[in-house]
C-alpha cells in the first residue's frame, strides 16, 4: 500500500495516515454532534434550556482520552523519524551544495554534477552545505527534507527503492529565483551508475582560483556567469578594457572596464547600472568583501577574456 521510493515512505505515511484517521474521527463525530444539537435543540422546538451542572468525571474523561491519544500520536511520529538520523556507516557519500539558485553535487574524486544520480537499493548519505543563504533539500517522493545552512553542515540519507526521476525542490525561501531552484534525483541500476560516474567531469579549474572562491562564497554566480551570457545580471567575461554602456543617476554614459569599475559595481552596485539591466536588484557588498578579497576578485575577472 505504500510506495517503495525510499526506505522512509512507510514510516512517514503510516504516521500520517494514523493521525489523519484520528483527526477525521473527531472532526466527523464533533461536527455531527454539533449539527444534531443545533437541530434537536432549536429554540422553536426547545424553548426552555436545561441548566446542566459541570460533571467532574466527564471533564476528567475528556482530558484523559485526548492526552493518551496525543501521546500516542507523538510516539508514532517519533518512531517514523528515528531512522532518518541513523545513517549506516558504509553509506555512499555525496556532498550537496546549495547556492542561489542551483544545486551542485560532489562525488568522490572532485567530480561534480547538477543532477543527483544514485544507484538503486544502496544507502546514500548526503552532506548538505550552503555557500550563501538558507536553502532546502526536499525530495517529496522519498519523504526527506532538511535545510542547507551556511557554515552549519546538515545531512540526510536514504535508500532509493524505485528507478526513475524524482523532483528535488528548494523549500527554504532564498530570494529571487527560489521557485526555480529545482533539480532531479535520478535513480538508476548500479552498473549504469558506475558508468555515469566514470564519465563525470572533474570540477572546473577556476574553482581553485582564490578570487573565484571569494565570489562563490558571496553567491556572485547566482546572478552573473563567466561565459558571456546574460543571467539576472551581466556576465563577468571580458569586462577589462571593454567599452561598457551604463546609466549613472539616470544619465547614459560609456566607460572602460577596469579595477575601479569592478570595485564600484560591488560596493555601490546601483551607481553605474549596466545598460538594459534593472536597478536595485543587487545590494552593496561593502560589509562582506574587504579590500584584499576585492583584489583577488579583480585578478580573477582579468583572466576571463
Amino acid at each position: 500500500m505504500f510506495s517503495n521510493a525510499s526506505n522512509f515512505v512507510q514510516g512517514v505515511d503510516m504516521a500520517f495516515a494514523i493521525i489523519v484517521g484520528i483527526s477525521l474521527f473527531f472532526l466527523i463525530t464533533l461536527t455531527g454532534t454539533m449539527i444534531y444539537f443545533v437541530v434537536r435543540y432549536d429554540h422553536k422546538k426547545h424553548p426552555e434550556a436545561r441548566q446542566i451542572k459541570d460533571n467532574k468525571w466527564m471533564e476528567a474523561t475528556w482530558i484523559t482520552i485526548p492526552l493518551i491519544l496525543v501521546l500516542y500520536m507523538f510516539y508514532i511520529g517519533w518512531e517514523g523519524f528515528i531512522p532518518m538520523r541513523q545513517a549506516p556507516k558504509d553509506a555512499m557519500q555525496i556532498t550537496a551544495i546549495g547556492k542561489m539558485w542551483k544545486y551542485e553535487f560532489q562525488y568522490e574524486g572532485n567530480k561534480v554534477s547538477d543532477t543527483l544520480v544514485i544507484p538503486i537499493n544502496k544507502a546514500v548519505k548526503i552532506s548538505l552545505k550552503s555557500v550563501d543563504v538558507l536553502h532546502g533539500f526536499s525530495v517529496p517522493s522519498f519523504r526527506i527534507k532538511e535545510d542547507m545552512v551556511p557554515v552549519k553542515d546538515n545531512y540526510t540519507w536514504f535508500i532509493p527503492g524505485e528507478l526513475g526521476d524524482f523532483d528535488l525542490f528548494c523549500t527554504v525561501y532564498c530570494g529571487l529565483n527560489h521557485a526555480y531552484m529545482h533539480s532531479i534525483v535520478r535513480v538508476v541500476p548500479e552498473d549504469q551508475f558506475n558508468e555515469w560516474v566514470a564519465y563525470l567531469p572533474e570540477k572546473n579549474a577556476d574553482a581553485e582560483n582564490p578570487g573565484y572562491k571569494v565570489m562563490e562564497k558571496n553567491g556572485c554566480f547566482a546572478c552573473h556567469n563567466t561565459t558571456g551570457t546574460r543571467l539576472v545580471g551581466p556576465s563577468f567575461k571580458g569586462i577589462y578594457g571593454r567599452k561598457i554602456k551604463v546609466m549613472t543617476d539616470g544619465v547614459a554614459r560609456e566607460l572602460i572596464g577596469d579595477d575601479s569599475y569592478v570595485e564600484t559595481s560591488i560596493y555601490e552596485p546601483n551607481k553605474d547600472i549596466s545598460d538594459g539591466y534593472p536597478a536595485n536588484i543587487m545590494q552593496s557588498y561593502k560589509n562582506s568583501i574587504n579590500k584584499e578579497d576585492m583584489k583577488l576578485i579583480q585578478e580573477y575577472i582579468k583572466t576571463l577574456k
Partner: peptide, 28 residues
C-alpha cells in the same frame, strides 16, 4: 459553529505538523 469546524481542521493538521515524521513531508 464555523469557527469550531475550521478550528478542528486547523488544530488536527497542526498535529500532523507537530509529529516529527509526517512533518518532514509537509514542512515548508
Amino acid at each position: 459553529l464555523f469557527f469550531i469546524f475550521l478550528f478542528i481542521i486547523g488544530g488536527t493538521t497542526g498535529l500532523i505538523l507537530g509529529a516529527v515524521a509526517p512533518n518532514v513531508q509537509v514542512h515548508d
